[in-house]
Amino acid sequence: MPRYLISFNYGDMNVPDDELPAVGEAARAVVRQASEAGVLVFAGGVGEPQDTRVVAPNGQVRVGPRSQRAEFIGGLTIVEVAGPAEALAWGAKIAAACRCDQEVREFMPGAQVCGE
């Protein structure tokens, strides 16, 4: 079955501080639903862009994003589902829970998974 990345950009989940606990619980509830449905591969938020570590081809490491781009992933979910309609349905559930748009993208055919 194909795997899909469902993600949102850092800063897109723009909700008042007093609503963050409710948004967090709603997001965890959708992740539990995906797990119980057997489609969840992975889900999680991503740290602050300024804390990014960049590894160069020569092995050198530096702190901070590699460019001044405007968008960074803020959180992601990976699901393994029958096809795009099901992936979009999970994306819609996550969008409602997180109160922000979600990108839904299929992993390229032949993507490798450890242990497979």
Rank of each mutant, 00 (worst) to 15 (best):
G38S: 07
P57Y: 06
R32I: 01
Y10S: 10
F42A: 15
Q68A: 13
R32F: 01
A29R: 14
G75F: 04
G44A: 11
A43N: 13
L20M: 15
F42Q: 12
D51T: 14
L5G: 04
N9A: 13
D18L: 02
V39F: 07
Y4E: 04
V61F: 00
G64A: 06
E36P: 02
P57L: 12
V63M: 03
G47D: 13
L40Q: 07
N14G: 00
Y4L: 01
G24V: 10
E80R: 14
R32C: 00
V39C: 13
I73K: 00
E80T: 04
A27Y: 15
R69N: 06
V31R: 09
Y10M: 04
A43V: 08
D17V: 11
V41Y: 03
Y4H: 04
A22N: 10
D18C: 00
P16A: 13
G75Y: 02
F72A: 13
F8A: 11
D17Q: 10
I73C: 10
E25W: 01
G75C: 03
G11D: 01
V39G: 06
G47F: 05
V79Y: 09
D17H: 09
A70L: 10
G83C: 09
Y4F: 15
T77P: 01
T77L: 05
G44P: 09
T52W: 08
N14K: 14
P49L: 10
R69I: 09
V41F: 04
V23N: 02
Q33K: 12
G64W: 04
E19I: 00
L20E: 12
Q33I: 02
E19G: 00
V15L: 07
S67F: 01
E48S: 07
Q68T: 09
G44Y: 08
V54R: 10
G44N: 09
V23R: 11
Q68E: 11
F42M: 13
F72V: 08
V63S: 06
R53K: 14
P16N: 06
A70I: 04
V23W: 06
V23T: 09
G11H: 09
